[in-house]
Nucleic acid binder design. Structure first.
Lengths: 110, 110
DNA sequence: GCAACAGTTTGACGCTCGTCAAACACTAGG
DNA sequence: CCTAGTGTTTGACGAGCGTCAAACTGTTGC
């Protein structure tokens, strides 16, 4: 009878710009942000995120950083976790920031 | 009679979003950004930047990170270096980002 | 020439970060 | 139950960061 729950996350008013920028200042987490930009919920499986080259525990670590920075929210449903972007919260706290970041569409192919 | 020169910096087209975010994901460098937001040139003296608590070599390090990320430009004039924001370059490469950052950033110290 | 000045560079220190591997917790399904 | 599936936690490791102190480079002005 497990109702859906959300993993702990900072309140909207507590979102800190420097923390958010530090969270996004990593190529893996930026890639996750782009995956989440569609507004949908995503599982944590690295293969669903174009991160086959990373261990699942590494991806879990990055998703924790994003959640604790307030970038994402995680809904727990059974043995799955569904991660999605806190778009309205971010837009409230940092108007225009998310749009500017996503518009900058980082697609660097080294 | 040394003519003014600029320290090496990345070209506008080479600015990388993740690198910029990583550069700004530090409280000291965010404070520097806010100081530079007035568009003026600033010396490197920590006392002119509200950073009395930091050693000058530490401030020099942070300014190098900002410059190498493409956030700032440094003009060399004699024994002084004048640092300023690459506002138009950043606006070209990442439209709206700087405005969103400055609008959301913590209040600048008087 | 020389001393004061404005910054940078180097080296050292502790600390954090990104990564992997292995062990763990919890759920779902036979 | 038992097992397979999904994700987290822990520990280890190397690499990098932020900081300071000291030495250094180059400039200005006496």
């Amino acid at each position: 009878m497990t109702e859906d729950e959300r993993l702990p996350q900072p309140a909207t008013a507590d979102l800190d710009l420097v923390t958010v920028l530090a969270a996004l200042g990593d190529p893996v987490r930026m890639r996750l942000l782009l995956s989440y930009a569609d507004g949908a919920e995503h599982s944590c499986d690295p293969r669903n995120l174009g991160l086959d080259h990373l261990h699942k525990s590494t991806v879990s670590h990055h998703m924790r950083v994003l959640r604790e920075a307030g970038v994402t929210t995680t809904r727990v449903a059974g043995r799955n976790r569904f991660v999605s972007l806190r778009r309205t919260d971010l837009d409230t706290r940092f108007p225009g920031l998310l749009d500017a970041l996503l518009a900058a569409a980082p697609l660097p192919a080294p």
